[in-house]
């Protein structure tokens, strides 16, 4: 099957500060693709680069065979890519319902209502909190809301940037479970940046190891998990 996303020889960064060096990757449809690596290795920058939030000096990015290199984020969003940043992924001052309405901002109102009730059926815990300000939600609920907001536009590819950061282990596991469900039930391709490399590699299909902005490993997630050196060296995995 043709890859849904192809990243080819990307150099990218912020202004004059280059973070990524010659990064390439291919993501198959309906895969969970995991990006791991030590702190500061450019994992989040890679996600942002795919979504058009950094400066690309060299290389190309194709989504469903179409060039998206250098496009602004809102155009990339229209092609069916959703990006969930680690923080600030919801409007804290708005109510849960207002957040969902904003996610459906560009949709005609009847379709918006339909989609909102769809995602509310999926994430029923939000139903009880519709009139509360999003800032009153717990960390896990916020991630759920953020997920719900991106689902409203029915994306084909979702980019998650450390969705479990700062969450209690039990909650983190639940969020990861929801992500797997998105793939299994809705057939959405997932790219996941995770701090907890072990958990991520266990649930992922393919994986990419970034160190210092360079690709150190690319292949099956399970292989990286069981790799004799790389795991201990960069990811703090115990044998």
């Amino acid at each position: 099957m043709a890859p849904i996303l192809e990243v080819d020889g990307i150099d990218a960064g912020y202004g004059k500060l280059q973070i990524l060096f010659n990064v390439s990757m291919e993501v198959e449809p309906k895969d969970i693709f995991v990006i791991v690596g030590p702190n500061g290795s450019g994992k989040s920058t890679l996600l942002k680069t795919i979504f058009g939030l950094t400066k690309i000096y060299k290389g190309s990015i194709k989504f469903e065979g179409e060039e998206i290199t250098g496009k602004p984020p809102h155009d990339i969003a229209k092609t069916g890519v959703a990006y969930l940043p680690q923080t600030d992924n919801i409007f804290a001052q708005l109510t849960v319902m207002e957040n969902l309405k904003m996610a459906a901002y560009t949709l005609p109102s009847d379709l918006a209502e339909e989609r909102i009730s769809e995602v509310l059926d999926r994430f029923s815990l939000l139903k009880a909190r519709l009139k509360d300000k999003a800032m009153t939600l717990s960390g896990g609920q916020r991630q759920i809301l953020a997920m719900a907001m991106s689902l409203i536009r029915k994306p084909k590819l979702m980019l998650f940037d450390e969705p479990t950061a700062a969450l209690a282990p039990k909650l983190a596991a639940e969020i990861l479970k929801e992500i797997i469900k998105l793939r299994d039930e809705l057939g959405i391709t997932i790219i996941l940046v995770e701090q907890n490399a072990k958990k991520a590699l266990q649930m992922g299909d393919k994986a990419l190891l970034l160190v210092g902005g360079r690709v150190m490993y690319r292949g099956q997630a399970r292989e990286l998990l069981e790799h004799p050196e790389l795991g201990t060296l960069y990811l703090g995995l115990k044998k």
Partner: peptide, 23 residues
């Protein structure tokens, strides 16, 4: 800096610096 900070093993540092640390 990142190398100094995160990687303990001198051998590995050397490998990475020279770009040989690909599996």
């Amino acid at each position: 800096d990142i190398l100094e900070d995160k990687v303990e093993d001198e051998q590995a540092k050397k490998m990475i610096r020279e770009g040989r640390a690909t599996p």
